[in-house]
Computed example of a mutant assay.
Amino acid sequence: MTFNRDEAKLREEICVTGASLYQRGYTVGSAGNISARLADGWLITPTDACLGRLDPADIARVDLAGNTVSGGKPSKTLALHRGVYARNATVQGIVHTHSTHLVALTLAGVWSEADVLPPITPYYVMKVGHIPLLRYRRPGDPEVAQQIAELAETVRGVLLERLGPVLWERSVSHAAYALEELEETARLWLLSNPRPAPLNAAALDELRHVFGARW
Rank of each mutant, 00 (worst) to 15 (best):
Met1Thr: 07
Phe3Lys: 07
Asn4Asp: 15
Asn4Met: 12
Asn4Tyr: 11
Glu7Asp: 14
Lys9Trp: 08
Lys9Met: 07
Leu10Arg: 01
Leu10Phe: 03
Cys15Val: 04
Ala19His: 05
Ser20Gln: 13
Arg24Lys: 14
Ser30Glu: 12
Ala36Lys: 00
Leu38Met: 10
Ile44Ala: 02
Ile44Gln: 02
Ala49Val: 11
Ala49Asn: 09
Gly52Thr: 10
Arg53Phe: 14
Asp55Lys: 14
Asp55Pro: 05
Asp58Asn: 13
Asp58Tyr: 11
Arg61Tyr: 05
Val62Asp: 02
Asn67Gly: 10
Thr68Gln: 14
Val69Arg: 04
Ser70Val: 02
Gly71Trp: 00
Gly72Cys: 09
Lys73Asn: 09
Lys73Leu: 14
Thr77Asp: 12
Leu78Arg: 00
His81Ala: 07
Arg82Glu: 09
Tyr85Leu: 05
Arg87Ile: 05
Val91Trp: 01
Ile94Met: 05
His98Leu: 07
His98Gly: 02
His101Asn: 12
Val103Gln: 05
Leu107Gln: 07
Gly109Thr: 11
Val110Phe: 03
Trp111Ala: 07
Ser112Val: 10
Ala114Glu: 10
Asp115Ala: 15
Asp115Thr: 12
Val116Asp: 00
Tyr123Gln: 08
Tyr123Val: 13
Val125His: 01
His130Arg: 15
Leu133Cys: 07
Leu133Asn: 08
Arg135Ile: 13
Gly140Leu: 04
Glu143Val: 15
Val144Leu: 09
Val144Ile: 15
Ala145Thr: 05
Ala145Tyr: 02
Gln146Ala: 15
Glu150Asp: 15
Leu151Arg: 06
Ala152Ser: 11
Arg156Val: 00
Val158Thr: 04
Glu161Ala: 12
Glu161Phe: 08
Arg162Thr: 06
Gly164Leu: 04
Leu167Thr: 11
Ala176Lys: 01
Glu183Ala: 14
Glu184Cys: 11
Thr185Phe: 03
Thr185Ser: 13
Ala186Asp: 04
Leu190Asn: 03
Leu190Thr: 04
Ser192His: 08
Asn193Phe: 14
Pro198His: 10
Ala201Arg: 10
Ala201Pro: 11
Val210Pro: 01
Phe211Trp: 08
Gly212His: 06
